[in-house]
């Protein structure tokens, strides 16, 4: 094992504990926003997609990397915006968007 791998595994192990510890006392009310917020955070994979897109040589890799960048960006941008809209509601204020359509 390389020293880099050991360092990575250490970080991984600590992050596991931290992840558990951080949300151990979350009220039910916040389950959905928290799921949505953490959903946006795994969009960090955009960083990986960018690294690949920034160095891909073959056409196949470029296509894969391009789609990965699009997907990951949707994950990040959409995830944070939807979470914000959800949490905005808790303030009791109106959403800024146009009034929502009726569902038949």
């Amino acid at each position: 094992m390389t020293p880099e791998l050991i360092a990575s595994l250490t970080i991984f192990a600590l992050a596991v504990f931290l992840g558990f510890e951080l949300i151990s006392r979350v009220p039910t009310l916040l389950h959905t926003p928290l799921m949505s917020g953490t959903n946006a955070i795994h969009g960090i994979v955009l960083v990986g997609a960018m690294l690949i897109a920034g160095s891909a040589d073959s056409t196949l890799e470029q296509v894969l990397a391009f789609v990965a960048v699009v997907f990951a960006t949707v994950n990040v941008v959409g995830g944070f915006l939807v979470t914000d809209r959800m949490l905005h509601m808790f303030k009791g204020k109106r959403p800024e968007g146009p009034p929502e359509d009726e569902v038949p």
Binding site: S8, G19, L34
Partner: peptide, 22 residues
């Protein structure tokens, strides 16, 4: 781990762990 990128390891693992608990 594949890309040797700590931001990905930390961000991903935090979600993996907190998501499991959630």
């Amino acid at each position: 781990f594949v890309l040797g990128n700590n931001a990905l390891i930390i961000g991903g693992t935090l979600v993996g762990a907190s998501g499991t608990l959630l």
